[in-house]
Amino acid sequence: MAEHVILFAGPMGAGKTTAIESLSEIETIRTEATNTDRETADKDTTTVALDYGEITVSDEDKVRLYGVPGQRRFNFMWTILKERAVGLILLVNNDAADPIEELDAFLEEFGELHEKGGIVVCVTRSDVAPTPYLDKYAERIREVMPGRMIPVFTADARNADQMRTALMSLIANIEMTAMIAGNQERAA
């Protein structure tokens, strides 16, 4: 069976666990502990190892959804999960103190996944904090990853339709990039 590992990364409180719950066919496996960092995210618990969900596409294909802990002190988990991943859905909460800086930090850490497959950025909580606008994110991505086209969407992690749109866009971008590269190779 072909397995397609998609990571969900982003700062604490961006909605990674919720996004996986919105997409997963199985009950999400969560590894949460009491949140001791109330300043960064005002929620009771936070992911300390990983969240896991899956979508069985067919007898031959399964999409595995892994949520990585948002706090840097758990970044040893990032390395392990990155190796198997073909794509990344990066969630950034717009009401963070400096969401663009968060974007920078996670792209620096996970940017290599664009070469292996693809990345989609989902900006959450834009209903609470309307700015920065998507253009700002897109502009920053062009600066730090020139020549790469990374989709950026506003999203509510609780909204299954929106998370499906993000996932489908990620897969579409991965497959299209591969097709274009293949065509260019043939042309050369």
Binding site: L134, M149, P151, V152, T154, M168, M176, T177
Partner: peptide, 27 residues
């Protein structure tokens, strides 16, 4: 070529629009 993807989560779109965006986003 696209400068950025359209924000499909707020647009009334078809699945084919994603493939089109992926194509014109990359060349």
């Amino acid at each position: 070529r696209l400068r950025r993807w359209p924000n499909f989560t707020e647009l009334n779109h078809a699945v084919a629009d994603m493939r089109a965006a992926a194509a014109i986003g990359n060349c």
